[in-house]
């Protein structure tokens, strides 16, 4: 009965533009891929993060350089771009931290159920984006 075993479609060499955009991820899937994206982003921006730590903490003079980078910019980079990149770091850190604590909570409690996966994923997304908005408004001087 060779006709019964119908040839199943194979998906290889997934096209990042054509195929990935058609994926409909559940909330836990978004938390998972954003955990990876935020981690990679912070890895690439690590020299900037260390620079922020260095200038902010080393001396009063460097602290002034640190502060003016946000208001007047630094070198050829305008201040608003510094703020946008720092906002990206803030989001990446918040998402990575909360999603990481979600991992730890699930590991410790063996809280592995479909419902908890979904609700905790939504909690992670709402809290990280919400805190990013609150801190971003502060960063851009809205309050």
């Amino acid at each position: 009965m060779p006709e019964l075993t119908q040839k199943r479609p194979e998906f290889r060499n997934i096209n990042a533009i054509k195929d990935l955009t058609t994926y409909r991820l559940p909330p836990a899937g978004w938390v998972s891929i954003l955990h990876r994206v935020s981690g990679a982003l912070m890895f690439l921006l690590l020299p900037l993060i260390v620079w922020l730590f260095d200038t902010s903490v080393s001396s009063e003079i460097s602290h002034d350089v640190f502060q003016s980078a946000f208001s007047a910019g630094i070198g050829f980079v305008p201040g608003v771009l510094v703020k946008l990149v720092v906002l990206a770091i803030i989001w990446a850190y918040l998402h990575h931290l909360i999603a990481g604590l979600r991992h730890l909570y699930m590991d410790v409690n063996h809280a592995v159920s479909k419902e908890f996966g979904k609700s905790s994923a939504l909690f992670t997304l709402v809290l990280s984006i919400g805190l990013t908005v609150v801190l971003g408004a502060k960063l851009f001087g809205l309050y």
């Binding site: 690590l46 020299p47 260390v50 730590f53 260095d54 903490v57 080393s58």
Partner: peptide, 11 residues
Amino acid sequence: LVACLGWAVQV
């Protein structure tokens, strides 16, 4: 990573 770590430790 090692370069960034060295810098951060120096700071």
